[in-house]
Design a protein around this nucleic acid. Structure first.
Lengths: 203, 203
DNA sequence: GTCTATAGCCAGATAGAC
DNA sequence: GTCTATCTGGCTATAGAC
């Protein structure tokens, strides 16, 4: 590996800024409502310059989604090294991380079933590879948690996995935050509780 | 009340057809991705004719949302008359109904935080009135369920209410349906279980 | 690689005949 | 009220100078 030149570093920094802006806008308004003009304005460059870095709006969004998955994979890897955690507590910690991300305005919502973005992501090898890797990591924890009697064995691992992905975009977080009556930490704990313990009384 | 004329009946039937088409398209692709041309094509009339019935795309969507709330209110009213049901079972039945609606492709997704539709709905008295009425009905059941020890009292009623609304649009249902490996009834029961009983083992 | 300016397209909304 | 045809604006994407 040769040391990257100054120009290459600048390029990388700029592209990171672009991806960060896209990520924020995706989280705020979703793919369809986000415009390339807004992205350019937020980064502070001309729209044409964006297209020198990314060939299309879809590629822009895909890069942001890949970055989110990379962050999630890093988080999961870090959780995996904490030997003291029970499998269900790893899952809980991962879910807590996604919820904090969402409240911070940095978690793009899942693409709707029939979105132009969805088609682009399904054709993106980098995205699919990371999604698969994350699914396998979490799937391993889910099976371990079920084997340890921590997760309901009446639920297929697939259902548990999808539920965790969906909770990363749970609109309940935003609704509670919008009400302005609660702080973020409290909101996260409530939603985590509904996710893992359910609405019904435990007894 | 005078008997409606034939013309008025035809008008009503046509507008019902329009609202039904909008409802289906909203459920399928969401507000931003739905086009007025598609609505017109599905109803089988010219786009300009649509605008004789509804002044804008937003009004079109709002009418569909109002209709959904009316159906939900009717369902809730019917559940309220079944004296044998415990409060939590009323809530469960209401949630089951929304999930079946979603799997049938008839439940529009909640408008995103920053959507043009959201602003229109917040300015629509008919929508807000119905939403409030539904919230009060469900809120009453939630408090009764908590008083009876059926719903976790560590959760504010507000959190429970928002969670039930959010589960009406839970993407997990669509993901499981898309996998094609399970039938709708099974999917509903799994998601209901995750909602009320949580992912963690009970016992 | 950055910019300004604009092409090309598509969707919401409207005009005007019938 | 229905239609065909069109207007208008905004959005993705590109041309071309520097």
């Amino acid at each position: 590996m040769s040391k990257p030149s100054f120009r290459e570093q600048m390029l990388r920094v700029r592209e990171d800024a672009i991806v960060a802006a896209v990520n924020r806008l995706l989280a705020e308004k979703g793919y369809e409502a986000m415009t390339v003009d807004e992205v350019a304005a937020e980064v502070g460059i001309a729209k044409a310059s964006l297209y020198k870095h990314f060939p299309s709006k879809e590629a822009l969004a895909a890069a942001a989604m890949v970055k989110v998955l990379d962050r999630a994979l890093a988080e999961v890897e870090a959780l995996g090294t904490e030997a003291a955690l029970a499998p269900i507590d790893r899952l809980r910690a991962a879910a807590r991380w996604t919820m904090r991300m969402q409240l911070a305005g940095e978690m793009p919502t899942l693409p709707a079933q029939n979105s132009a973005l969805r088609a682009a992501l399904l054709a993106d090898r980098g995205y699919l590879d990371r999604l698969l890797m994350l699914s396998e990591q979490l799937g391993g924890w889910i099976e371990a948690a079920q084997a340890a009697g921590e997760i309901d064995t009446a639920l297929p691992a697939e259902v548990v996995l999808y539920t965790l992905f969906a909770r990363a975009c749970d609109p309940v977080l935003g609704m509670l935050q919008a009400s302005g009556r609660h702080d973020d930490a409290q909101i996260v704990e409530w939603v985590l509780r509904t996710c893992f313990d359910g609405l019904a009384t435990r007894g």
